[in-house]
């Protein structure tokens, strides 16, 4: 059933190397007694943006928290291997993970000002991140660097924002601060959890464009959960669709939008397109109109998926077998 797919090794591809490899990740919720994540796998290269799509409650966020190993206390990990640059994260102690978070991988949380400590200034919260990893550097030094980070993130008047309390910030500004916190120590892998939800469309585009450019510039990888088709189509290189904790489809972005294979993926796409059509949304960000000139292609030939559950329909394009 597979129609034309891009070449297995497209011209733009760079072998920049795998940064994260997750296999057979299973998370069990003790209180609700259900699998939040069931046998998830992924492979992320340097500079790749992986979009995890699914409806709310599908386990998108849990997947990110599982990778960064910040599980809710009632969630236990049943199985799984998480390798970051070849290092086994499961073998690391809590202390080692604390060091790794922020420095190597960090998460951008949603919620704007509600995700910032309300009683401390935005600047001091960025300084807190820096100081956690560079305890020996002087306060003044860290403050200067924090202001510089704010500037890089695209925050106007960074020294004023530095002294602002979260309640004094707009939603978009607060969300930029959250991005600044995650990027403060220049980690190589970012996990973004629907962090543009709730922002208005123009602000969202501004934030995402600037952020995306920064990622490219620094060759930073991102795993982004989203339920926004536009965002997935515009910024992601690879798409994973997740339903009830299971990855049902995993594919390069163009391939996915051209040839969704799993019935659930098709359902998602058609529902979203229908909603867009109804809202008569005629922005530039329609999924098919992606400017691919800057794209690097990421095609994962050796995804760690169990072969008895998944079929390879095209290079790097896996579909979970359907039960029904």
């Amino acid at each position: 059933m597979v129609t034309e797919t891009p070449d297995a090794t497209p011209a733009g591809s760079t072998a920049s190397g795998e940064i994260l490899r997750v296999s057979d990740l299973t998370l069990h919720h003790l209180v609700e007694d259900r699998l939040v994540i069931d046998g998830a796998f992924m492979s992320v290269d340097s500079g790749e943006v992986l979009g995890v799509m699914g409806e709310s409650g599908s386990g998108k966020s849990a997947l990110l928290f599982g990778i960064i190993r910040l599980l809710l206390r009632e969630v236990e990990q049943r199985s799984g291997r998480i390798a970051y640059r070849g290092e086994d994260l499961m073998a690391k102690s809590n202390r080692q993970m604390e060091q790794l978070r922020g420095l190597e991988m960090a998460m951008i949380v949603p919620g704007g000002k509600f995700s910032l400590n309300p009683v401390e200034t935005a600047g001091s919260q960025i300084v807190d991140v820096l100081r956690s990893h560079f305890p020996d550097r002087s306060k003044k030094d860290l403050a200067d660097e924090a202001i510089e980070i704010l500037r890089i993130i695209g925050i106007p008047d960074p020294d004023i924002r530095f002294r602002a309390y979260p309640h004094e910030l707009s939603g978009g500004m607060a969300q930029r601060i959250l991005i600044a916190k995650a990027m403060a120590c220049s980690p190589q892998l970012l996990l973004g959890d629907e962090f543009t939800v709730g922002l208005d469309v123009t602000i969202q585009a501004q934030v995402m464009d600037h952020f995306h450019a920064l990622l490219r510039e620094r060759n930073t990888s991102l795993i982004l959960t989203t339920s926004d088709l536009g965002i997935a189509a515009t910024y992601c290189d690879t798409i994973a669709v997740i339903r009830r904790g299971q990855i049902v489809e995993y594919a390069p972005v163009l391939d996915f939008f051209a040839n969704p294979q799993h019935s659930y993926s098709r359902l998602l796409l058609s529902a979203a397109r229908e909603a867009r059509a109804q809202q008569k949304m005629d922005e530039a960000r329609v999924d098919v109109e992606r400017d691919t000139s800057q794209d690097r292609r990421f095609v994962h030939e050796d995804l760690p998926a169990p072969p008895d559950l998944y079929t390879l329909v095209a290079p790097g394009h896996l579909v979970r077998l359907e039960d029904e």
């Binding site: 604390e98 978070r101 949380v109 400590n117 309300p118 807190d128 100081r131 990893h133």
Partner: peptide
């Protein structure tokens, strides 16, 4: 809270997290 989870997810050290919790 979202802000403590958020701070932990970007690697804020334990001592600082404790301060966040205490102050709030």
């Amino acid at each position: 809270s979202q802000y403590v989870t958020g701070a932990r997810a970007v690697g804020v050290r334990r001592r600082t997290i404790t301060r966040y919790i205490m102050r709030n």
